[in-house]
């Protein structure tokens, strides 16, 4: 279980990097590592940009990788809308850094074999992602 602090841009990417190293260590296929790293980074950035704090849990065997990201934050009022490429609620200063292009959730959906998002407005969001080694 790894902790992420909302607004911590300096530390952003550290958890994704740790997860990538663990997966390399246990011998997961490079293609799965690549997809899992990209999706985890997008999820981690979402926590940093939108939430107060979050946690990432990794459950991995060489053939299947399950990553759960849960946060305390504003939640997502309309998940279908949030999944649309280009839709973003990120503030301007975040967009100037090259984040908030509305590509994060679509990237996660494309990379993961299974993506499940549950969210309660005002409480937080839980994202489950599964990556399979075919």
């Amino acid at each position: 279980m790894f902790r992420i602090d909302g607004g911590d841009f300096a530390g952003a990417g550290a958890v994704s990097s740790k997860i990538k190293k663990i997966l390399q260590h246990i011998g997961t296929k490079p293609e799965i590592i690549r997809r899992a790293s990209i999706a985890t980074y997008e999820a981690e950035m979402n926590v940093v940009i939108h939430a107060t704090m979050g946690e990432i849990a990794l459950d991995a065997t060489p053939s299947i990788v399950h990553i759960r990201i849960l946060d305390e934050g504003p939640g997502i009022p309309d998940i279908d809308r949030a999944m649309q490429p280009g839709y973003s609620t990120a503030p301007d200063e975040i967009r100037e850094m090259g984040f908030g292009a509305g590509m994060g959730l679509p990237n996660m959906e494309r990379c993961a074999d299974k993506l499940d998002i549950k969210s309660v407005v005002g409480i937080g969001t839980t994202v489950d992602m599964v990556f399979r080694n075919e």
């Binding site: 841009f9 990417g13 950035m45 850094m97 090259g98 984040f99 292009a101 590509m103 494309r110």
Partner: peptide, 26 residues
């Protein structure tokens, strides 16, 4: 756009950007 790079750049690619902050390194 960092998500664009995440989606399309591949291992061993050279990245050209106007961004200058540390998240680029991540």
């Amino acid at each position: 756009l960092l998500s664009d790079v995440m989606a399309n750049a591949k291992s061993g690619y050279l990245w050209i950007t106007n961004q200058k902050h540390q998240n680029c390194v991540a």
